[in-house]
Structures are given as structure tokens and as C-alpha cells.
Design a protein around this nucleic acid. Structure first.
Lengths: 121, 121
DNA sequence: CGGCCTATGTATAACAG
DNA sequence: TCTGTTATACATAGGCC
């Protein structure tokens, strides 16, 4: 959205599309992190790239995922009724399971790559 | 990030935090959609607001979720080996299940609210 | 609180090497 | 193709109703 007002449509040119993809993923992840920190909410971003083996996921660090899982578990202990089948725990559960699985799948070098990509810190 | 370079830290003031939350969620969802359309990739954003019943989720429309599920199913039919336990289908499966569940949970008025919030279209 | 405004910081399309 | 630069559009903090 700059030297020309780009219309919201699939970018046909492969080269342009990939450049745009990398730039935008980087900032999408950055924004997700900012929202989470600034507002103290849990947020999650998942992007399935075209050729990439694993999707880009945030939160991706072990620390972050552990914190979220830990929060969830401690809440459940405090109030067992929260384990019931309601919308909130239901959805949280799905996301947490996905996160747990992702944790196992992520490779150290992949994490470093993404961290570097978004200019982590 | 404007009339003052806001530091990346939890916003203590309740009122400011909620205003920032609404503004940023709106744009995060918009950006997620843009990335998805421009680059032809599947992307997903989930934000657990503080007081909201349901998380803000994108994609949230029935059409979009159906398209993704349909894509997945047709791929599986074409190549049953893809159903095997590998990273790609594994992760897709998790996300799709989450989306299917979200579909059932979403209320029409909630959708309208979000659509309006992000200035859909 | 919920919108709207606007000055300013950011994101990014196009370009250059 | 990827990385760096730059000009311009976009996002948004702080005000004001």
C-alpha cells in the first residue's frame, strides 16, 4: 500500500508475492505479539505458507506456550467447574492442544529463523 | 505508536487498554485477511479478549471455513497417503477441527459485529 | 463510554544492486 | 532471488466531544 494503491487480490507474480508474503508475515506476527503484550490477552497467529514445511505460528517459543498452558491448568485447579463443556474452556482446550503439539514439532533452528525474521525483542 | 513512542508493555489504564485493544484487533484481523488474499495462503488469527465470551477469530465466515474444509477433504481423496501422520496434515487437521467447532459456536450477530468492526469488504 | 479527528510513527510497494 | 532503500499509504495514541 504505497507507491500505488494495491487492490486486495491475489498477487499473480510469483516473485512479488513471495516478497510481500515474507514482509507481511513478519509484521503480522509482530502485531500479534504487540497486541498480546499491550493488552494482556492471549492471541495466536497461524500462517500456512505455500512451500514451507511447517506453518508460521505465534506464540512459538517454549516459554510462552508453557506460560499459557500453565495458566490454563492453574485456573482449572482453582475452579473445577471451569472444566465443564462451555464455550470458553472448549475453545481454549483446542488451542492449547494445538500449541502443545506444535511445541513438539518445532525445531530449534526453525524457531531461530522466525525469531530473526520478526526481529524478536 | 504515534504522538508518543509507546513502549511495548502492558497498558495499566483500563480505559486506554480497551480502546487500544479494539483498534488493534480490528487491524490485526484486517491484516490477516489481506495476507491470506494477497498471497493465497491460509491464515488464522485467534484473540482471547478479556471480557468477551467468545474469542475473536478469523476466518469466521461460514463460506471461508467451508472452503478450507472442502479443500482439505478433496486433497485427502486424491491422495489417501496424505492422511498419514505427518506434520502437514497433522497440523491442518487440528486447525480444521477447531474451525469446525468455532463455526457451530458462532452466532450471527457476533459475526455481524466483527464484520462491522473490521469494516469488512 | 463510543466516535471522530489528526499528528506522527509504521508498514510496505516499488525500485536498486 | 534476495537484501537494502525510499516514498507513500496506513495505523494509531492522544484529544475532543
Amino acid at each position: 500500500m504505497v507507491r500505488k494503491k494495491v487492490k486486495l487480490a491475489y498477487i499473480e507474480n510469483d516473485s512479488c508475492r513471495r516478497v510481500t508474503y515474507r514482509k507481511r508475515v513478519k509484521n503480522l506476527v509482530k502485531k500479534t505479539r504487540e497486541l498480546s503484550v499491550l493488552c494482556g490477552v492471549d492471541a495466536c497467529a497461524i500462517i500456512y505458507g505455500q512451500d514451507e514445511q511447517a506453518p508460521v505460528v505465534w506464540p512459538s517459543s517454549e516459554e510462552e506456550a508453557k506460560r499459557i498452558i500453565s495458566d490454563y491448568n492453574s485456573k482449572s485447579e482453582l475452579d473445577p467447574s471451569q472444566r465443564g463443556f462451555n464455550q470458553y474452556t472448549f475453545l481454549n482446550d483446542s488451542v492449547i492442544k494445538a500449541k502443545e503439539r506444535l511445541l513438539k514439532l518445532q525445531r530449534k533452528n526453525r524457531e531461530k529463523q522466525i525469531a530473526n525474521m520478526i526481529g524478536f525483542g
